[in-house]
């Protein structure tokens, strides 16, 4: 069997599952080394993506994280993301990769207590806002006043704890 990149004998056989489809690639020792295939920790996801250009459609090529400036090219090259927001921006290209990389795509481990509290506060703030808007629309001013008071209390609490 010949190497995918050169005519040498292929000794490394890589199987990847991307978007639920299996892709096989045969590489010689030298090309495998160059691509980082022999050391799973240095395996650049980007390098491998390069070998499957058809799997990255044109719409993802221009992706850029507005928060930190990381581009899809940066991620392909270095295999690293730049910030929290990158995980939202690059989610479409990331998800199929995670599937092949990990035991699952959903977190089942520890949940930090602060972020949970913050999230539930955010959620209830959002919920109260929605209810308030609805009450105003329905001209139920008594309910709206109560909701506004609850919202104010919640905001005061969160700004005090921050």
């Amino acid at each position: 069997m010949k190497c995918h990149h050169c005519d040498s004998q292929a000794t490394v056989h890589l199987t990847q599952i991307i978007n639920g489809q299996m892709h096989k690639m045969d590489l010689c020792e030298a090309c495998a080394q160059e691509k980082g295939v022999t050391n799973p920790d240095n395996l650049s996801i980007g390098n491998l993506l390069d070998e499957n250009p058809s799997k990255v459609d044109a719409s993802t090529a221009s992706m850029t994280c507005e928060s930190c400036g990381t581009t899809h090219q940066d991620f392909k090259k270095g295999g690293r993301l730049g910030c929290e927001a990158c995980y939202h921006v690059f989610r479409p290209v990331l998800e199929p990769l995670l599937d092949g990389m990990h035991a699952g795509v959903k977190h089942f481990g520890k949940v930090p207590s602060r972020s949970v509290k913050k999230k539930s506060d955010d959620d209830s703030e959002e919920l109260l806002n929605k209810e308030l808007k609805k009450a105003v629309e329905e001209e139920n001013y008594e309910k709206a006043a109560k909701l506004r008071d609850r919202l104010k209390k919640l905001q005061a609490k969160s700004s005090a704890s921050a």
């Binding site: 295999g79 929290e84 995980y87 990769l97 990389m101 959903k106 977190h107 949940v111 972020s115 999230k119």
Partner: peptide
């Protein structure tokens, strides 16, 4: 405040450490 996502867990520079 940690970078954390309820679906993806602790967010890391390299996705190989995610979760």
């Amino acid at each position: 405040d940690y970078a954390f996502d309820s679906q993806l867990g602790f967010l890391t520079a390299c996705p190989t450490n995610l979760g």
